[in-house]
Write a protein that binds this DNA or RNA. Sequence first.
DNA 1: CATTTGGTGGGGAAAAGTGGGTAATTAGTC
DNA 2: GACTAATTACCCACTTTTCCCCACCAAATG
Lengths: 142, 142
Amino acid sequence: MFQGEFSNNMDEKGRVSIPAAFRDSLNNFHADGKIIITRSHNTPCLIAYPTREWKRLQAVIKDMPAELKRHFIRVVITPSQEFAPDRQGRVLLAGVLREHAALSRSVHFAGTGETFEIWDKASWDKQLEIGLAALKDFELDM
Amino acid sequence: MFQGEFSNNMDEKGRVSIPAAFRDSLNNFHADGKIIITRSHNTPCLIAYPTREWKRLQAVIKDMPAELKRHFIRVVITPSQEFAPDRQGRVLLAGVLREHAALSRSVHFAGTGETFEIWDKASWDKQLEIGLAALKDFELDM
DNA sequence: CATTTGGTGGGGAAAAGTGGGTAATTAGTC
DNA sequence: GACTAATTACCCACTTTTCCCCACCAAATG
């Protein structure tokens, strides 16, 4: 389970620490410590999948109609990178990925349950504001 | 059941005691002692859910139409933090949450039945005044 | 008035994050 | 194919934050 928000700094070399809470989730619960990071196909952020979830995604894509499948492969499968964070818990993201999410110094990690998202802090803040505005008048009945 | 109002102070380190009355409710009545604290989506306060209620909320959100769901995930699910209060009954709230509720020193806890809210005392007072004004001319027939 | 319970402050140990240095690998060029 | 340059991986060290525990004070209880 990936839950919570964390901001870490990317250093000169392009390395960012994966929040410890997420690293723990990657190591427990039948996970193997590895993550696959790739583009979000419809959001200016990256998505990190533990191995099992990544396999699920691949299966889903595999069953898509031919053209859609091709697009997904190009956009999502191809740029994906597998990581085992180094001893300090950091990863070095490839240029393509950094650019897609427009990552600068302050990198924001957002847990979403089975996966987590990686945002540039500024983009995240903007996105969040949009969310808050959209929910402003929404009444939640429970 | 969470009822009553309590004000506690947040210390230099950002810790606040959960009122003992609420902690008791968290431990009795088939609860497991844990709370999940997150943003209120339309109010400048935080909401604390015992595990069971949190699951209910997750289920509700899961069944929402795609766009609404996405917003709720960003605003409510992602920033959520799970706590088992320490031996002194305190929790350390993440910055994101503290900011959303604009928490300063005096923190106000308000029981609302199945959950409870966490307010900055000043915001709470203001909100209460608005409530009183709105009900000023309302006659309650029973 | 004594005793318990709840809230608050602070200290110390551990963990997380960050920066930098060096070795190893890769890539590029002659 | 060998040499050089650049990139990447690995390791060490420092700083900051977080967590856990102890101790005190104040209020409530009997």
